[in-house]
Computed example of a mutant assay.
Amino acid sequence: MHRCRVLLAVAVLTLCGLCGPYASGASAQGALPQLVGTWRGPSEVVLEKSGFSSQEVEFVILKQQGHLFTGVKKYIKEPKRVKTEETFTGVLLDDGKTVYFSDSDAGYNFATLVAPDRLQIAYLHDGLGKKQAPMACYMVLTKQK
């Protein structure tokens, strides 16, 4: 599993490096979108062992410096329904729409800023070498005003 995470990280970094020179997006025009703030919305979840569910999630982006950002994710962890917070770090690509971030629980988020206040996210978690069930989530979050 560690090898898979390393390969995924290398693939993402390679993709970022290859796309940079060809980007015609926001950074090339001067300004990246500011992601700092609270993003909330529904999450559709599937866990390998317990099946399908849905819940509200909250992502709080605390700091952004250029392409990079940090924050905290808040949600209810299944199956025991425990309120959970995880930190994350991320990167916004030059197109001003493509967003990748990883959380402290070994999960990866692949996101698109579909509007200035709407973030569509696909989340994948590999199961931490069978310490936890693999899972996938689909979220559409709205930036709170």
Score class of each variant (00 low, 15 high):
Arg40Leu: 01
Thr89Asp: 06
Trp39Tyr: 05
Gln65Trp: 06
Gln64Leu: 05
Ile76Cys: 04
Thr38Asp: 12
Leu13Glu: 10
Ala136Lys: 08
Asp95Val: 06
Gly41Glu: 01
Asn109Ile: 02
Gly51Lys: 07
Gln120Asn: 15
Tyr123Ile: 12
Arg40Asp: 00
Lys145Glu: 13
Gly51Trp: 03
Leu62His: 11
Arg5Met: 09
Pro134Asp: 12
Arg40Phe: 01
Leu124Cys: 07
Glu58Ile: 04
Gln55Gly: 08
Arg40Thr: 08
Ala23Pro: 01
Arg5Tyr: 09
Pro79Gln: 11
Val45His: 05
Ala122His: 15
Ile76Glu: 09
Leu128Asp: 15
Gly107Gln: 01
Gly51Met: 06
Thr70Cys: 15
Gly107His: 01
Gly17Asp: 08
Lys97Cys: 04
Val57Arg: 01
Ser54His: 13
Lys131Asp: 12
Gln144Leu: 08
Asp105Ala: 14
Gly66Phe: 03
Ser102His: 09
Gln34Glu: 08
Tyr100Arg: 04
Val10Lys: 14
Lys143Phe: 05
Glu44Gly: 10
Lys49Pro: 11
Phe88Ala: 01
Asp94His: 05
Asp105Pro: 08
Cys137Gly: 02
Tyr100Asp: 04
Met135Leu: 15
Pro79His: 10
Lys73Val: 12
Ala136Arg: 10
Val140Met: 08
Pro116Leu: 07
Val140Trp: 02
Phe101Ser: 00
Gln29Arg: 14
Thr70Gly: 12
Ala106Tyr: 11
Val60Ile: 09
Glu44Val: 10
Ile76Ala: 05
Leu141Met: 03
Gly17Leu: 11
